[in-house]
Design a protein around this nucleic acid. Structure first.
Lengths: 170, 170
DNA sequence: TGCGTCATGTAACGGGTTACATGATTTA
DNA sequence: TAAATCATGTAACCCGTTACATGACGCA
């Protein structure tokens, strides 16, 4: 969800909504890319919930709202970050939302979450393999193709987590 | 979008909303899995738009609405199916929505759409490579990790399309 | 008797997008 | 002088989910 990405950005430094949009396009855009129509209401909500503070200034005649994360916001962000990575379907890239911010988590916890994630993906992959066995004879070639893609996709994600990510972290 | 998946199901045979949910769980669930709260309103909309016909029967005292696709519906479905596959971000599996139904498209057209898709993915991959060059020194390790995942993910999808899908089709 | 399956649907809510509205400053 | 960039925001709309409501049949 966008709100957590914005909180994550504020962990690094104070920013305006406009800054965050810019920052997004240079960092998370290939897996999360929110519009202003989503960013500004999110910031308002974060403020209402008491997770951020804002400082209004006037620069070059323009109103500027600079947001900063507070203690409560940090607690909320780390609570989200340390909760299990949910991977349903082959839309694996949703996992990137958390991995992107793993520098804010203790090393062992990051590794634990990734291993848990690998385990979940393995379960999904096995359920697809079962499905394939069931429909192998009746399904049409393209249906089987997409099934194979699903299986290969889970495989790719698992190997990437294991061989690339975990190895790089140790 | 769910409506097109439902239309696609009806290309094969007439079904009730309940049937479609069942069918989904055995076929598209790993990339599209709609709830009844989405399926029933979608069917109503398809009916209002004049893309499907429905036949109401009573079986075992229960009302049953069996939907069938009409000519207009087929035209609409094939129009959607033959339009370019949109792949933005690393959520590649959205491409599966169309590939799943490629049996309803002439072979050459399917191949054309996939080659177009490979080309698009290549552009996305290159923009990520550029981004990586730009931020290589400043970004933190996990930020770079997710970037690498993005690049590898596009690579995986391209190779899969080329080596697996296209080869299998020829 | 109570659970699982068949079968339909609505209402509240959530979270996103596009398009619009405003307006100053900087750059070509 | 016109466009791009900085900067904020709202309103309409889209589409999805969860939870709820209803009810019959068959089975253990």
């Amino acid at each position: 969800m966008t709100e957590y990405i914005l909180l994550g950005f504020l962990m690094e430094k104070d920013m305006t909504g406009y800054d965050m949009k810019q920052h997004m396009s240079m960092s998370t855009s290939y897996f999360v890319d929110a519009s202003f129509g989503s960013i500004y209401p999110s910031l308002k909500r974060l403020n209402n919930k008491g997770f951020v503070a804002l400082k209004e200034t006037i620069e070059n005649g323009k109103l500027k709202k600079t947001y900063s994360i507070n203690e409560q916001g940090k607690v909320e962000f780390l609570k989200w970050l340390s909760s299990p990575i949910m991977v349903s379907r082959t839309d694996i890239s949703s996992a990137l939302e958390k991995i992107f911010f793993f520098r804010y988590l203790p090393h062992e916890q990051s590794i634990f979450l990734i291993e848990q994630c690998i385990h979940d993906i393995d379960r999904y992959k096995n359920s697809l393999l079962e499905l394939k066995n069931k429909v192998d004879h009746e399904a049409d070639p393209f249906g089987l193709c997409t099934l194979d893609f699903g299986i290969d996709c889970y495989d790719f994600a698992m190997h990437w987590c294991e061989e690339y990510l975990i190895n790089k972290m140790r």
